[in-house]
Amino acid sequence: SPVVLPPFFMRGSIIQLADGELKRVEDLKTEDFIQSAEISSELKIDSSTVERIDSGQSPNAVLIQFSVGELKAQVCVEVLVEYPFFVFGQGWSSCCPDRTTQLFELSCAKLCVGDVCVSLTLRGLR
């Protein structure tokens, strides 16, 4: 349900990387996700490109269509407009960055069609 956002997007939240290093959510870099996925025996990082952004069925929600990984599988997710995604080389981005910053004090860029987001998949799933 896109109703409640998880607390770990709140500025100052402590995030543990796969190598055990601790970082604040606002300080995370693309490399942190890439290196953590490389270390992880179970998880693999995928590139998910934003193909479409439509208004969702729930209030304050959007429907985002991604093309995921090498196979460019089409996946749709419905999230609240302030839900932040991590864009490669850019950082946290959402469909309503002002709202994300207001709620989480997390600086945030605008998520746009064409942005490539970090996503995960289980190793060996395909």
Binding site: P7, F9, V25, D32, S119, L120
Partner: peptide, 19 residues
């Protein structure tokens, strides 16, 4: 202070979720 794992921050986008 709670510590959250890195992989909770980004979505699992599995093809099986399409459609």
């Amino acid at each position: 202070v709670p510590v959250f794992p890195w992989h909770s921050l980004v979505p699992f986008l599995e093809p099986s979720q399409s459609g």
